[in-house]
Amino acid sequence: MFSGFEEEDLPDSPLDRALYLQNILLSVAENGTLSQPAYTVLRRELMQSDARDILPEVVRTCRDHGSVWGYLKGVASGSGSWDARRNHIYEAFTPLLDHLEGRNRSPADSTISEALSSFDTEGVHRVWERALQRRHEDPEGAITAARTLLETVCKHILDDAEEDYGDDDLPKLYSKVAKVLNLSPSQHTEQTFKSILGGCHTVVQNLGTLRNRIGDAHGQGRNPVRVAPRHAALAVNLAGSMATFIIETWSARQANTDRGRA
């Protein structure tokens, strides 16, 4: 692709490749030249990855030396300091590097990721990864992604069950899924099960309400509600747990159906 450049010369791990990209930009910040071949390859990989939303703005918007240098000069406008440009790069790469190092993740994240990925990598799992990435850097966006995750899972289940849902909102979607999966409280007589399943419905309903009130999908007034990362983490974790429960229940139902046909 590029004369004298081999992709095999780049580091193997995603974290090391991200650090390599950071060093390329640091070189430009100190009035060096851009290693265009390596920059192009690494930028393309990250732009196509699930980490796209947390890439530094300079990576998302700049393709070559001229645009990178123009961006970095703007960052340090007024001071002309290469140190200011360098510090900006370090700060801009922090969310990406934290993500690749596995920081800000709980033990449950991997379990949920595995379940969602096996169900639908391109749709459901991609939304989950977006929610995880935003918990600490963009709490409002994380809450919106948490609701989107549950909506996506419910619609996938209803599509597979050949059930119509039209423009239903999240509570209605979940109510239909609950009936399909025998998870509606009214479908059980044991009080403990009724209470637990009623609690599940309350969690889903309140996640929808939370997103409408403080997510990033709607504008707010002069005194907006401030969302802390811990609030976003709670919303995302609840959505991930509910999504996993729904998927595992659907999978068990399908397995029982298949055994009945055998």
Rank of each mutant, 00 (worst) to 15 (best):
L210I: 15
V225S: 10
R135H: 00
A235I: 07
Q48Y: 03
D258I: 08
V180E: 10
G199A: 07
A142H: 02
N223T: 14
N31G: 03
A262R: 15
K172D: 07
N206D: 14
F5W: 09
V227W: 02
V41L: 11
A142E: 05
Y90Q: 05
E129R: 15
I89K: 05
E248P: 00
A232D: 08
S241V: 07
V153T: 02
P139T: 04
S27G: 11
T209M: 11
W128L: 04
I143V: 15
R259H: 10
S3F: 12
W250K: 06
A235W: 01
K176M: 05
L25T: 03
Y39R: 06
E6P: 00
C200V: 15
S49K: 00
D164G: 03
W128H: 07
S110T: 14
A131P: 06
G166M: 05
R86A: 15
Q254E: 14
D12H: 09
R147Q: 15
W128N: 01
K73R: 15
A232T: 02
Q205M: 09
C154W: 04
T249L: 03
L210R: 08
R211P: 01
G123M: 09
H65W: 01
A232P: 03
S110Q: 13
L116A: 05
T244I: 00
D64I: 01
T111S: 11
I157S: 02
L15T: 05
R86T: 15
R63T: 13
M1S: 10
G78S: 10
N237A: 13
